[in-house]
Design a protein around this nucleic acid. Structure first.
Lengths: 261, 261
DNA sequence: ACCAGAGGTTCAAATAATGAACCCATCTTA
DNA sequence: TAAGATGGGTTCATTATTTGAACCTCTGGT
């Protein structure tokens, strides 16, 4: 392992619950010699990747990271980063794939790709906001977002879009539980009367739900084999999209969407 | 220079105008051997600090940076990072110092510190939004923000707060020019009839104005000596605050607020 | 007055970084 | 189409940088 990697890996030890770490903490966490660790810390700090608290001498993430993140966001915004991911999935599956981000109590479509591989296609409007309880994307977000927040959504009156739209909180809770168990949300004609869809959550920094990735198939083409194929692709997609955003899958759920790497 | 620094400095070559760089570009920019540069690039990419375009093989800033920036923002938000800067300035000068951030066409106070060193104090309300044309903070932002945007502000009717509030666009343009030349905005009783103030801009990522740092003094204590002292402190403050935010002073104006380092 | 644990430093020994030369594409241009 | 130029990437002996045991100093607890 190169010196650069050793130094950069130290940055990974910071998190919401560990905002500051001292020299001794790093020695424990890395298992490396104190002198080595100290030199790495000093060098990271000299470059602004860490800064040291005057009083406690503890280290925290530095401002240089903010600057670089600003550059990345301006030059490669989430949308342009996710587009190739969505397109690759769509081409692989031959079906419509879309990525939406959570905004308040609705999902806002960010990118979609339709391979036009078949005669019948799913209609998708990027300007239309998606409800949480009636789409597979939404179900995925409800299942892996903050539970108290999800309860709040279920508590409000829920609109019905088709005969298959579920609006009963108790049954929705069961569907959320099933999604939490499998890692994949699946809905049959709940929003559009001709569409069957599956979705996975996508996580942002600090392992919070950022949005969802979903595949929508015309009912006429849906089937067990196709469903299995899509689920497998989405499991990968969850990890790829999360990684592209600099996000991370919550530790507790990591087994649901195995790391390809 | 350590290996870590060599690798990290490569990240600094990315900017809005240079979102992607190839191996040969880095060789030119760093002057180092191609093999060395390549190994550094690979190691940075392996840690997610860079990612490589499949097609062009060029490198761009990677998602790991976003993740770390998210952690830093959650654990050390701008306000808490700037508080010690503002407090140190206030104690050094014995006067009220505040930092405000630009929100639309007004400045929103973020932190302030009052050393209570004298009998007469400046009244400061953190809940009150500050106008751009009548405060030194605002003048600083107008002077170093986007010129077209600043013109738009001057084009609208401007409220008058005291007898000294300047509302004439032509005269305001002259004051902006003076601020651009000196690097310090100064106003005498333009917003509060008893207060004299000076301000400097603070820049965020990508060298755009983020807000302003300002010192307000009761008119009765104002004077040439004090004004000079404050200006010197603010020149430093601009650089310190900008750096704390991960921002950068625009290249063209760097001489106005010399780097302490 | 002592000990434990923190941050930080030193210098010989050893490991990891280095760079000249090389390979293989693709793209220009003669 | 052949020769040259440019770009990405790799190899391996040489070299220089990183490494870690021991040491220093300070603070807080008992």
């Amino acid at each position: 392992m190169g010196t650069i990697t050793k130094a950069l890996e130290m940055l990974d030890h910071f998190s919401r619950h560990r905002p500051e770490l001292g020299l001794a903490d790093f020695v424990r966490l890395t298992g490396r010699d104190k002198a080595t660790v100290h030199r790495h810390l000093v060098e990271l700090a000299a470059n602004g990747f860490l800064e040291q608290d005057e009083g406690s001498r503890a280290y925290r993430l530095g401002p240089a990271i903010l600057r670089l993140a600003g550059v990345r966001e301006r030059t490669h915004p989430a949308r342009s980063v996710l587009r190739p991911v969505v397109q690759a999935l769509a081409e692989e599956l031959g079906e419509l794939v879309h990525m939406s981000i959570l905004q308040g109590e609705l999902l806002s479509p960010l990118v979609h790709a339709d391979p036009f591989a078949h005669g019948t296609q799913v209609h998708f409007d990027e300007a239309e906001m998606l409800p949480l309880h009636a789409t597979s994307s939404g179900l995925a977000v409800l299942a892996f977002g903050d539970p108290a927040w999800a309860e709040g959504i279920l508590a409000a009156p829920l609109p019905r879009f088709t005969d298959n739209t579920e609006t009963d909180p108790a049954r929705l809770r069961a569907m959320i539980a099933a999604t939490q168990a499998s890692g994949i949300a699946a809905l049959d004609r709940a929003f559009d009367g001709e569409v069957v869809s599956q979705g996975v959550p996508v996580f942002g920094p600090d392992a919070r739900v950022f949005g969802a990735l979903s595949v929508a198939v015309p009912r006429v083409r849906a089937g067990a084999a196709k469903s299995t194929e899509i689920a497998a692709a989405l499991r990968r997609g969850c990890v790829v999209a999360t990684r592209a955003l600099g996000g991370q899958v919550p530790e507790a759920h990591r087994a649901l969407w195995p790391e390809g790497n």
